[in-house]
Design a protein around this nucleic acid. Sequence first.
RNA 1: GCGCCCGUAGCUCAGCUGGAUAGAGCAUCGGUUUUCUAAACCGAGGGUCGCAUGUUCGAAUCAUGCCGGGCGCACCA
Length: 566
Amino acid sequence: MNIFKLYKNKFSEILLSNNYQCNFSKLTVEPPRDPAFGDLAYNAPLILSSNLKKKPLEIGSDISLLIKNNFSEFESVELVKPGFINLKLKKDFWFNFLSAFGDNKDMLILEKKNINIEYVSANPTGPLHVGHCRGAIYGDVLANLLNFVGNKVTKEYYINDYGNQIHMFAKSVYARLLEINEKVPFPSDQGLYPGDYLKDIAKNLINKNVIQNLSNYDAIKDQIGTMAMNEAMLMIKNDLFSLGIKHDVFVSEKELVSRNLVEKTIEILREKNCIYEGILAKPKGNENEDWEPRSQLLFKSTDFGDDIDRALKKSDGTWTYFANDVAYHAYKLERKFDKYINVLGADHAGYLKRLKACMDALSNFTSDFECKVCQLVKLYKSGEPYKMSKRAGDFITAKELVEAVGVDAVRFMMIYRSNDSQLDFDFDLVTDKTKDNPVFYVQYASARIHSILGKVKFNEKDFDKKNLNLLNTDVEIDLIKKLSLWSKCLEVSSKNLEPHRIPYYLYDLASSFHSFWNLGKENSDYKIIENKDSNLVQARIFLLNKILLTLKSGLGILGVTAPKSM
RNA sequence: GCGCCCGUAGCUCAGCUGGAUAGAGCAUCGGUUUUCUAAACCGAGGGUCGCAUGUUCGAAUCAUGCCGGGCGCACCA
């Protein structure tokens, strides 16, 4: 239950029934900046004043009175200077709140949506590297979050298993096959994929013993390409698995092409008058010597907010990558989702507008399509930038990262910053077992609670909830109030697609808990289980259970474990 | 030159889509342990929210223009 939203709605009803008119969406009920002001701050007098042409404080006294007369749960209703109404809830309210507290799963949205989220979509030419990790985890956590609050989510991966890069990939694997079988040195000057993992792929192909006629490349190149790509996809799925990621749907570009979906989609755009033959201007500031004016089949993406129109056909007459991608997005639309999310890396941010343009064109502006861009990750080791070797192909893989620091740390830290900000990832910090390491700090709270729960018998069914009013001290009430922010956190995170708010909330909750825990050291009244009053012990265990429930839910969304001991 | 992102404490970043005296962590300084997990807690100092206009009751938040940093910029994917 989001109490802020609840009271916003309740107050709006009261205003309406008393003939107050305004833009109700501008009214807010929020926790005040300073807890001394109370539990809720209502801004209605400020918003209404311009409508009614009266001073906020004048209007405020009327509204305060309405609230006092209609609600009994407020200890105080106070009208203050610019025009806020500060409300303080009685302790009984918080005991009731705690008594009914759940994990908020499926509770938060009225409109449940069928959502498609595409993320990772790394090329099937090798394992995932560190650069892929952030988008992969962001997409995955976002999917978990949207699912948690009640949506139906389809996690999708688009496989670029078509086009020139696959030819290069097949050639590269072929060169490795020759290297292994015929001792032909691997050529370094042909732009082939250099990574060592190609040797593994080649070895696997040899072990399967299905490639005949190794000397005739043209005869076997398609076979090699397909098999090598399957090997690479296995690597990728394996890497994703080690990151805790599992997609629901894999869509193959090759398959879309073979179903003639590209031609069909371009025809649809042509009927909508979005296609023409034209010449693009030379981009300024880009000293490309090979540039020459060229007449091409173009998509009129400028009609849909893009900066320039985009090429659909290459000079050799084949479709561009973008043309295939338009077809892919038509295929997404065909499957009729309520919302489409696409997670891209910063290096593909320039691609965003044309994707949005093609979705708008194909759906006549009816599709709810949102691209989220993850900025770059900078690696550090003990505070020093950790440079990857410039030698091509020598990159840190996702798997190596997970093996070095553990999947919990990778997932937590990758989501710990807003996706719009660059992220510093320090190898050493995330493996520290101190409070400097936020992953540890939150998990430690879980371990501490488990440690207590193992020492006391507690059964929620036998617990008399009337005893919750023994949680009478400010710190205990503050902990309950902290729990009330969880649903707000979920709501804001999912509405704005900003999962980074979750680890922040969990850190905050863990901090309040650690603080409470330590009070027992100076004042034995605050000891949780070594306490004479057994009803109080039970009430505190009830509270700890709810804190743990929240930690588990939050960490669950992040895909991070909530350990029982550490 | 154009597009996207960022600019908040010495450092790394939050800031609930316009609210009250701008918050955390690290770092610095000082305190707490015969322990229900000190792998923790408590306290102190530290700010022209890059700069400038504008919008209004009210701006770190919105708009415009600068300055600085990152990413990208015809037929690759």
